[in-house]
Amino acid sequence: MNRRIRTITIICLALILIASLTLAGSLMDPEAYAPVFSEKNLGPSATHLFGTDWMGRDMFMRTVKGLSVSIFIGLLASVFSSVMALFLGTFAGIFGGKVSAAFNWVVDLFMGIPHLILLILISILLGKGAKGVAVGVIVTHWCSLGRIVQAEILSLRESHFVHASYRFGHSRVWVALHHVLPHVIPQFIIGMVLMFPHAIMHEASITFLGFGLPAEQPAIGIILSESMKYLTTGMWWLAVYPGVALLLVVVMFEALGSNLRMLLDPYNAQM
């Protein structure tokens, strides 16, 4: 099995796993994680892989459901945020000069406030809840990708093949479509996938602090923050398994991102 086939296999596996997890969670019957008061506080076993909580809810089902909610928000946020990065970065890169300086200024502004504080700020601005998290995660993650896109375009503008293409009499749009876009798209896709781990972890963190999704939603941040109250009673499985599941999802996205990079951008991947 050569490197290329291995890379493609890993990408496919990660995609299948993520897709099936999300589907399983979104199609799940709420009965599967409904309270069963006769089965409270059970440790992990064959019938309840992740144990049950203080209301007798099956933690495995809750975790799958919660992960699907979190993946969904994470995906939404990274897609929107990277599109934002693409637009702003392209805009700044094409116009250069003052526009580019203004762009950098805004990025500096965003990076000047600690990320988590900014998320809290946006969350309270929008009155907490799911909207606050989604908007917060979207508007705070585009900065670094936006900078990458901008730098890419600024350097492409000065490259020989772009100048040559202009000399051949091609229009700006033609050059943008044929010479600039093919260079930016791989960066964009990789950036989007690699943004996901950040997005989902920030979503979980902000929810954990009490600014995110409402408590009745089985999101992973809610599950973990609830389990905090039961740590002292020795119910370790409430915190450990959902966290490990989250970790695995993040690792899958990272594997997806870095393998995509090997495929799409082999030069930069072999650092």
Binding site: S227, L231, G243, V250, V251
Partner: peptide, 13 residues
């Protein structure tokens, strides 16, 4: 790949 607060919870446990 793991959120900071979860690492804290594991250490606490």
């Amino acid at each position: 790949s793991s959120p900071a607060f979860w690492i804290g919870m594991l250490l606490l446990l």
